[in-house]
Write a protein that binds this DNA or RNA. Sequence first.
DNA 1: GTGCTATTTGGCTATTTTGCCAAATAACAA
DNA 2: TTGTTATTTGGCAAAATAGCCAAATAGCAC
Lengths: 108, 108
Amino acid sequence: MTVNNQVKQKYEARARIIKAMGHPTRLFIVDELSKGERCVCELRDMIGADISTVSKHLSVLKQAGIVGDEKRGLQVWYNLRVPCILNFFGCVEDVLKANVAQARKAIT
Amino acid sequence: MTVNNQVKQKYEARARIIKAMGHPTRLFIVDELSKGERCVCELRDMIGADISTVSKHLSVLKQAGIVGDEKRGLQVWYNLRVPCILNFFGCVEDVLKANVAQARKAIT
DNA sequence: GTGCTATTTGGCTATTTTGCCAAATAACAA
DNA sequence: TTGTTATTTGGCAAAATAGCCAAATAGCAC
């Protein structure tokens, strides 16, 4: 089976979503939002980067459809729109564990 | 809670693995390997890119610990080392569906 | 209206990623 | 040995990403 244009677009759409998760700061944000909604300034305080940087990371996640936002007063509150994204963590942990085991085996 | 160095490294390690999945070609490879092992030339034929390009994508996945390889004769056969990675697809599909629903709602 | 705070956007540079070509390497056959 | 095939590696240019600063925007209080 060759990858035609339609199939290619399907994988591109999927990759866009996964790519949005592929950054340590954005991963942290998702993890934090799994505990409840957070405003941008709270996240900035935790992350310690410029607020414009945090805002752009949030916009990447929002663009992908992973988070949603709601403005209340001066603050914008972000929330996790698709909790199933948390399932990623479990498998990622498995991969890391397997890598450690493999590294150990390679030494001995 | 501020993000200290140790916490940062944990998220970086996780992000490296997810980032390895965040490319349409690599996503296709993982999907294909879920059906069984494939050699590089088979994947190249399906993907239609230069074989060096395919080889480099495979090396990114291998580096992350997602795939393994085995040389048999002239060919190198790649296999999926952590099948749980396939769980990603289901959630990604959910995100895409939610996005479509949201877009529809925005129009009307 | 002015002033203050929270957030986003534009613009810039530095870094990373991608994909091709060419060259190197590895396994096998003659 | 030479030749052939499969794959990886090095190098390069184009494209994408990241993070900062400064400016713009939005909501609220006065």
